[in-house]
Design a protein around this nucleic acid. Structure first.
Lengths: 225, 225
DNA sequence: CTCATCAAGTCATCAGATGATTTGATGCAT
DNA sequence: ATGCATCAAATCATCTGATGACTTGATGAG
């Protein structure tokens, strides 16, 4: 375990501990040295040790039990993956979400329940236009509609990631993009739902892909200009 | 800002602060009350406040600057998304990864570089069989091959998520699954690379889909029995 | 052998003090 | 008035010491 630089001691201590954990120095379920021992190993005060440990707990690597000790919960750290995804930029994120959207539509065509269909048709009908209640409200309705398609896939992992991308993309667009993205018309939206309802996976996937292509092209144009 | 229960004060304090941040009480870039003030607002000691703040920093919600203050970095929290994905279970994760794989192959067919092709062919040739160096080594080579396909998509967000799923799936399989998944033969592997090399996106996507279908079916069988 | 009791070990929290860094105010020289 | 060096206040970073709460294995009575 390495000593550390002066300021940012907590971060250095956390990184040092994290490295040891990922290296497999302690097995999952094993107890790591107590706070006093870590104080000596890392050459920092107990308060700093506690802050470092607390960070690793929040990352899911450690688990502290009062009166007993601090235990290794996992020796793999996936907490950085989403941060790296966020740093990949708007284009890759949009394309990745579109990929999930396409495959979700394919699955939805095969697995949708009657309730899924009902919800999709209802949200499709409720979309309306930008004129109804303003832009933000329309955006909300549009997002809800697309999400209902992904939900109909029945795959919770895809839904989670879809939500993540939607949130990340929205944040980026709000802060960086000037100029609007084209919004496909109602017919393109309806085509997706109809393909899903008819149970044709290829048609469903194709309709989403056709839906996304012009938007992605315009996004490319906006980002390169 | 709520008071708090007794043990687990740090977690409660962090949750309380997190809720306030997500509610938009402070705008992004705005400075939150200093540690002493938070001590009074949350009715906990400064050490506890610091641990709570440290957790929110590691989640990307806050940003502390010595001598200046602690500032809001983001008002949306995506740190829980991957944890929820992990809890969705092996089947959904496998299917989600397959979805990324299919769309990645499609993009790879359209965008691969000569270096991508070279790498894929090299890794395909190096795959060999389980007999060469044992099961773990073969698994490593197989993973490297599949990853090279996803890499050839040129989409870093998809690559990140693919890696995450691979790691999560591996962990789950190691700890829970008895019985092997079928491994498609070399011809199926080669078909994917050839489709990508020929620049045919539909064929590339279809070959990956055909590749994954029997594996997913067997996974279903193993999980339901 | 069973079970209640207890003491040691460990994390949780608090309190107070000092150091390091940032930042705006002050005042001087130009 | 302007530019600049200096300084003091504000703030986070770290350390030290002490007390409380909880867990766990040892102890000893029955």
């Amino acid at each position: 375990m390495q000593p550390i630089n002066r300021t940012n001691l907590t971060e250095s201590a956390a990184e040092s501990l994290r490295t040891e954990i990922l290296s497999g120095r302690w097995a999952v379920g094993e107890r790591i040295p107590n706070e006093t021992a870590l104080t000596e190993l890392l050459a920092v005060s107990r308060g700093t040790v506690r802050e470092a440990v607390r960070v690793l707990i929040s990352k899911g690597l450690l688990d502290a039990r009062q009166g007993s000790g601090t235990y290794v919960r996992s020796t793999v750290d996936t907490s950085g993956a989403l941060d790296r995804v966020k740093r990949t930029g708007l284009r890759d994120q949009w394309e990745a979400r579109a990929a999930l959207d396409v495959e979700a539509a394919r699955l939805a065509a095969l697995r949708h329940t009657p309730e899924d269909l009902e919800r999709m048709f209802k949200l499709l009908g409720a979309r309306g236009t930008v004129a109804d209640g303003g832009r933000d409200a329309f955006g909300q309705r549009d997002i809800a509609f697309h999400r209902s398609i992904v939900e109909a896939s029945g795959n919770k992992a895809i839904v989670e990631l879809y939500d993540f991308f939607t949130s990340a993309i929205l944040e980026t667009i709000h802060s960086t993009l000037r100029g609007d993205l084209p919004e496909p018309d109602d017919r393109a939206h309806a085509a997706i739902v109809e393909a899903i309802a008819s149970g044709d996976p290829d048609q469903a996937a194709a309709s989403v892909r056709a839906f996304m292509a012009p938007v992605l092209a315009e996004l490319d144009r906006l980002l390169t200009q």
